[in-house]
Design a protein around this nucleic acid. Structure first.
Length: 289
DNA sequence: TCAGACCCTCACAG
DNA sequence: ACTGTGAGGGTCT
């Protein structure tokens, strides 16, 4: 085992790991336990930062600081937000919520499984996938077995029925076909990093089961395109209720607004509005006429 | 723009 | 306890 304190402030670990951007973290007695790549990881909030524990000895922590984005100038993100009442309220209520930087394939595959699913159900599907097709990773003595997220090659080699057995329903053929395209090199997920955001989005939308919303999730949560702004049912509600309470803007109008109003870190703003809507104001989401 | 289909699970009524 | 019902971080036609 190895331990390391990653110095950081204003980092709400629970909100960040459980808000629906990543699906592999579980709350445990002394922190949060998950798998990043092929490493078992436990994270805990401490006064001076995040205490990380990994199963195998290591001196390299760059991969974890990259995943957690602990070196990000968080104040600069908050300062970049437009000074409007809804966003101020969301930031106050969800202070310390952060965005992770995940591995593209895992993020893409997870969000293909996300359509019209609740977060807990997505977590269940991803867990099933990892247990069925992932590789065992080293865990500390006494801990439950853990598995890596399965490679595109491994999923491409599975049958649709095997994937459906992971409870993903009609998403199975989409995940299977996308895994084939990634595994055989028809799509190069690493190369997307180098493209402008619009082109990277076009590439992702070509994949079966990937529309605008899921593409934007991957652009934001995996590739770090901070301007990507996924619009789902929750964010649509937030925008309509908080910014257009007396009008009925079209989807196109909302998309335009989301791209122009929130600035260079629009994706961060999106996550604050999403989390605010789901946690702080759940009752006010009831049937908007 | 606008349905409707698509799998399956869970929360919630009754 | 049971069954019925609706909807869930969408996508595709």
């Amino acid at each position: 085992m190895s331990q390391r304190l990653l110095p950081v402030s204003d980092y709400d670990l629970g909100a960040t790991l459980a808000c629906g951007q990543a699906f592999r973290w579980k709350s445990a007695a002394n922190g949060w336990v998950g798998v990043i790549g092929n490493r078992w990881v436990r994270l805990a909030e401490q006064p001076k930062g995040l205490l990380a524990t990994v199963a195998e000895p290591t001196t390299d922590w760059d991969w974890l600081e990259d995943y957690l984005q602990t070196r990000l100038d968080f104040d600069a993100v908050l300062r970049s937000f437009p000074n409007d009442a809804p966003l101020r309220a969301a930031v106050t209520a969800c202070h310390g919520l952060r965005l992770l930087k995940q591995e593209p394939w895992e993020c893409l595959a997870s969000f293909i499984c996300s359509s019209t699913k609740r977060i807990v159900q997505i977590q269940q599907i991803v867990e099933n996938l990892c247990e069925c097709f992932g590789a065992p990773v080293t865990v500390p003595v006494g801990h439950a077995p853990a598995y890596s997220f399965p490679s595109p090659e491994r999923i491409a080699a599975a049958g649709e029925a095997e994937l459906r057995a992971c409870k993903m329903g009609f998403r199975a053929p989409n995940l299977l076909r996308t895994a084939v395209l990634v595994a055989n090199g028809a799509v190069d997920l690493q190369a997307l990093r180098l493209l402008p955001v619009e082109q990277a989005r076009e590439e992702l939308i070509q994949l079966p089961g990937v529309g605008r919303k899921i593409a934007d999730c991957v652009l934001l949560f995996a590739y770090g395109f901070q301007e990507a702004f996924p619009v789902d049912v929750w964010v649509r509600k937030a925008l309509r209720q908080l910014y257009f309470p007396k009008r009925r803007p079209s989807a196109a109008r909302l998309l335009k607004f989301s791209q122009t109003h929130f600035g260079p870190y629009a994706g961060y703003a999106q996550q604050y509005l999403f989390h605010y809507m789901r946690t702080v104001r759940p009752r006010s989401t009831e049937r908007s006429p």
